[in-house]
Amino acid sequence: MRIVFITQDDPFYLAKNLDYLLKKMPPYAKVVGTVVADVSPFGKKETMTEKAKKTYDIFGLPFFIRYGLKFVTSKMSKQNSVKYVLEQHQIPLIHLESNINKPDSLDKIRAYKPDLLISIAGNQIFKRPLLDLAPLGCLNLHTALLPKYRGLMPSFWVMRYNEKYTGVSVFFVDEGIDSGPILVQKKVEIGNRSQAELIEYTKQLGMDCIIECIEKIHAGNYELIENDASQMTYFSFPTREDVKAFLAAGKRFY
């Protein structure tokens, strides 16, 4: 099984989780290439200055300082680099010069002859020609119990609304947003975790779920879970008022 990853250069959580995932890959699954987009924490392309200002305005000074320092130190350490982890596992980067859905980008991905695409923190909407490129489809990891909490930053929103449980869903991508049929889903009790602790836990659980998906697809005898659109909720990035409500409810970022 030839696999192409689609991800982004996240300096906080992704490198160590990709390393964990790659070390657990079954012998019949080979990651033959990876598309690595620039990091986009708010779901769209912005300059570094715009990202920094938005982080400060929404989350406040303590959050801004903590994650600003973490961003700088992560960038200074090879171990926190997605590209470094891929290099250590001898996985080539697929360099795209335009949007992933453009014909020239599709041609570059197609050249790696993938059987399966896997999006992990992918930050572009995938259109049908890309989804049809690999015969086994395209999987995506979402750290919430779909169909609830589609969209951005589910770890924030489940805590903002005092959910007792969240989870991880790995689903087949369609042309909607987090709307495809679910292959593997795991439920997680939030408890007294901070948002950072919840992200850490669900990201690694997500890697285990991806492995389980690969095993199910390889075996060919899986059942899909409906991602019921009538039950869906969708969230974008929070406002300053949402952050105030999060903190007023006694929730912690870290």
Rank of each mutant, 00 (worst) to 15 (best):
M1Y: 13
I3M: 14
I3T: 05
I6W: 02
T7G: 08
L14R: 09
L14D: 07
K16P: 00
N17A: 00
L18N: 05
D19G: 10
D19H: 07
Y20A: 02
L21Q: 01
L22W: 11
P26K: 06
P27H: 09
Y28T: 08
V31S: 12
V32F: 04
T34A: 15
V35L: 08
V36W: 01
D38W: 02
K45L: 11
E50N: 04
A52L: 12
K53F: 07
T55L: 08
T55E: 08
Y56F: 15
Y56E: 03
D57S: 13
I58R: 09
F59K: 05
L61M: 11
L61R: 09
L69H: 06
F71M: 14
F71Q: 12
F71L: 15
M76R: 14
S77G: 00
Q79T: 13
Y84V: 04
Q88H: 00
H89W: 00
I91G: 12
L93W: 08
H95Q: 15
L96N: 03
I100Y: 02
L106K: 01
K108P: 06
I109C: 02
A111H: 07
L117M: 09
A121P: 00
R128H: 04
L133G: 04
A134V: 00
C138Y: 03
Y149W: 09
R150T: 12
L152H: 07
L152G: 02
P154I: 05
S155Q: 15
V158I: 11
V158T: 15
N162C: 13
G167R: 00
G167M: 01
V168S: 10
F172A: 06
V173D: 03
D174T: 03
D174P: 05
E175F: 08
S179I: 02
P181A: 10
I182D: 05
L183N: 06
Q185M: 11
E189A: 14
I190A: 08
I190H: 06
A196Y: 08
E197F: 03
I199Y: 07
E200C: 05
T202M: 13
G206I: 11
G206N: 10
D208I: 01
C213N: 02
L224D: 11
L224S: 11
A229F: 03
S230F: 07
M232I: 00
Y234D: 02
Y234W: 10
F235A: 12
S236L: 12
P238N: 08
D242Y: 11
D242E: 09
V243H: 07
F246N: 07
L247R: 11
L247P: 04
G250T: 13
Y254D: 14
